[in-house]
């Protein structure tokens, strides 16, 4: 019995930790279906009749901001995936002078902490007249997020057999064709991985949109914060707003997990 004790205690601690971990999520779900006045009167009761009106009200408040966030995310993902894989292709399949140095110049940027560039990057964006414009977000985001794409696609493209490209070159295919029609389609799982990481980091960013954009062009994270500011007065509305705005990240993570595993499995089968 005493040998079983640690397992029993361990299980209890684990359940307790899990409950504590999930409290914010539970709070989100329960409050988003409750009337604010009810919460003030009786904090602990569960929603007897779910107040779906919170969601319809919150949708009106956050829908524009979610649209803005999705626009910024999609353009950034397309830009980062395209530009990153183009450079990844060149570094993997071409030989040219200064290759090592140029690669270091790009990847070395990862050592620059974003904190250092916040102030001067704002000055740059402001000189380009891109404050309060989505391009003031998208262009710097692409600059930073393409790097992961360069590294991952370079490794992948290096593993492809040279005959694949040689044969197409014999047929007179241009480098552009080799990249777009041969290399790109083969690395779609990697591009999706890069896309998912990029999407999640851009969608969740609060600081840079808060610095660059004004209220009328706000992203979801900005809308969530202002919901909270106004919303100590209506907890039901604000939590419903957070829930709606979390749907894109939930979908991308769930969809992405499946794709990610599929990519790994198919890779394992081929080799």
């Amino acid at each position: 019995m005493s040998a079983r004790m640690p397992k029993w205690i361990g299980g209890t601690v684990l359940v307790l930790l899990l409950v504590l971990t999930l409290i914010p999520v539970l709070m989100l779900l329960v409050f988003s279906l409750r009337d604010n006045l009810d919460i003030l009167i009786d904090f602990w009761s569960l929603p007897d009749t779910p107040k779906w009106a919170n969601y319809t009200e919150a949708w009106k408040v956050v829908k524009d901001s979610i649209g803005n966030s999705l626009f910024v995310c999609v353009v950034t993902v397309i830009g980062a995936v395209f530009i990153g894989s183009l450079s990844g292709y060149v570094f993997a399949r071409h030989q040219f002078p200064l290759k090592g140095l140029l690669f270091l110049l790009l990847i070395g940027v990862m050592m620059i902490p974003s904190l250092l560039t916040i102030v001067p990057l704002y000055a740059t964006i402001s000189n380009l007249n891109m404050t309060n414009s989505f391009w003031g977000l998208i262009l710097p985001y692409i600059a930073g997020t393409q790097l992961l794409g360069i590294m991952l696609t370079r490794t992948f493209f290096e593993s492809l057999p040279e005959e694949l490209f040689e044969a197409a070159r014999m047929d007179g295919a241009s480098e552009w064709y080799l990249y777009l029609r041969i290399a790109m389609p083969l690395c779609i799982p990697i591009l999706i991985t890069v896309g998912i990481v990029t999407f999640l980091s851009v969608y969740s960013d609060y600081l840079w949109p808060f610095i660059v954009l004004k209220q009328e062009n706000q992203t979801f994270t900005m809308a969530a914060v202002s919901l909270n500011r106004a919303g100590s007065s209506d907890l039901g509305l604000s939590t419903a707003g957070y829930a709606i705005g979390s749907i894109p990240t939930i979908i991308v993570i769930l969809f992405g997990m499946k794709y990610y595993i599929e990519g790994m499995v198919s890779g394992a089968v081929k080799s």
Binding site: I83, G84, L86, S87, Y89, V90, H94, F96, L102, L105, L106, V109, I112, L116, T117, V119, P120, L121, A123, T124, L139, P140, I142, A143, G144, Q146, I150, E175, Y179
Partner: peptide, 24 residues
């Protein structure tokens, strides 16, 4: 072609990372 294909990456990195770093 190699250098041409690298221009987009370098343009972004210089404009939005190296240049702000130097400014800082």
């Amino acid at each position: 072609t190699s250098y041409l294909f690298l221009i987009p990456s370098f343009a972004f990195v210089f404009a939005f990372l190296y240049y702000p770093m130097i400014l800082a």
